[in-house]
Computed example of a mutant assay.
Amino acid sequence: MTDTAKDRSRPETRRGPSMADVAKLAGVSSQTVSRVSNERRNVDEATRERVLAAMRRLGYKPNRAARALRTGRFRSIGVITFTLSTYGNMRTLDAITAAAAEEDLTVTVIRIPDPTTGTVSGAYRRLSEQAVDGVVIIFEAHLLDQADITLPDDQPVVVVDSNAGDAYAVVDTDQELGARQATEHLLGLGHPTVWHIAGPEDSFSAHHRVTAWAETLRARGITSPLAMRGDWSTDSGYRIGRELAARPEVSAVFAANDQMALGALQALHEAGRDVPGEVSVVGFDDMPESKAFWPPLTTVHQDFAEVGRRCIEKLVHAIETKEHETGRALVPTRLIVRESTARYAG
């Protein structure tokens, strides 16, 4: 067999579109395509869009590994969380991944079932080994405020919903504002006091909500009733709701999340306590299902999308500038008034 015949017998190798192909189609130089691929800012918007359109048309995908070697950035972030069972954590994670996608960032999630010093540090180390540019940590519990919990300072870190003190950048819903809005709403309807179904004692969010509830009552000269602790579940709200339903003096209840409010509603219904005729109920979260409760639930709306956007914004800024940002950014809440609350009937 001749060499020519051998060459003809070899399968043809199809190469993917090159940077030069993109440059030709977009009518720009290869250097301009490189700048767009590496997300440099020295390209005007019209040219950038033309290059991106050419990339999409040709199916050109920049080599992330090669770009990482050139820029030192992997376009990837990590998320550490210790539970995905709560509504707030799931919505927060969803918002972070959506905001990351807008920035063309990939996300690696590590769940820690038992958050301790070793497991937190271990999770952080595993993420570092997977070549991430920064980390978001979602912890409800009082953990990062403990003296022996420290994280390496060679990567940007943003913390959600935890008492991280001044060591890290923190993004959170304004928990105290939401609790004040709920409590003031019920007092504004003429109720002599407000009973509170609180979240777990080790929860940072629950701590701020119960504190703001008690302080709001105190500012009106009202001694707060004993907060009744639940665990965020509908079952715990039902259990506490049965206790509250047996107290004829209870006319207003603020539950620290919508799921516990739902349990309380069921207990009040079973006890023959009319809602809102006898007892008004307010939740916290504004779950999509809360408007389908019976009656539809008055609740505090959390803007999880904004929390996720700010997390990624802070992380990207820290990655790009190499600045170690600290301080707390609070996302405002708003009260959604529905049919589960009414004026005090006396």
Rank of each mutant, 00 (worst) to 15 (best):
240 I>G: 03
268 L>C: 01
267 A>D: 03
246 A>G: 14
269 H>P: 00
276 P>V: 08
216 T>R: 13
242 R>C: 12
235 D>G: 15
243 E>Q: 08
274 D>C: 01
224 S>W: 02
279 V>F: 13
278 E>N: 11
270 E>H: 10
217 L>V: 00
252 A>T: 10
253 V>G: 08
202 D>S: 15
253 V>A: 07
245 A>P: 00
239 R>Q: 06
279 V>D: 06
230 G>W: 12
225 P>G: 10
274 D>Q: 01
231 D>T: 14
271 A>M: 07
256 A>E: 00
274 D>S: 02
240 I>K: 09
261 A>Y: 09
279 V>S: 12
268 L>E: 00
207 H>I: 04
247 R>P: 07
212 A>I: 01
223 T>D: 03
207 H>T: 15
264 A>M: 07
270 E>Y: 05
270 E>P: 03
235 D>Y: 12
219 A>V: 11
226 L>A: 08
232 W>K: 07
211 T>W: 04
243 E>C: 05
258 D>K: 15
264 A>Y: 08
240 I>M: 14
263 G>P: 01
240 I>Q: 11
274 D>F: 00
259 Q>N: 10
240 I>A: 12
278 E>F: 06
247 R>H: 14
226 L>G: 09
236 S>P: 02
250 V>K: 11
256 A>S: 08
206 A>V: 00
225 P>W: 12
267 A>E: 06
208 H>M: 11
250 V>C: 12
236 S>C: 09
237 G>F: 01
238 Y>I: 07
214 A>G: 08
259 Q>E: 13
216 T>K: 14
272 G>L: 11
228 M>E: 08
273 R>A: 03
233 S>L: 05
207 H>Q: 13
275 V>C: 06
205 S>Q: 05
254 F>R: 02
217 L>T: 01
205 S>R: 02
217 L>W: 05
252 A>L: 12
237 G>A: 02
245 A>F: 01
278 E>I: 03
247 R>E: 12
227 A>F: 08
213 W>G: 00
221 G>L: 04
216 T>L: 14
244 L>I: 04
278 E>L: 12
251 S>A: 07
209 R>D: 14
225 P>Y: 12
275 V>Q: 10
224 S>L: 03
223 T>F: 07
243 E>V: 03
229 R>I: 15
214 A>I: 13
262 L>A: 01
236 S>N: 06
257 N>I: 13
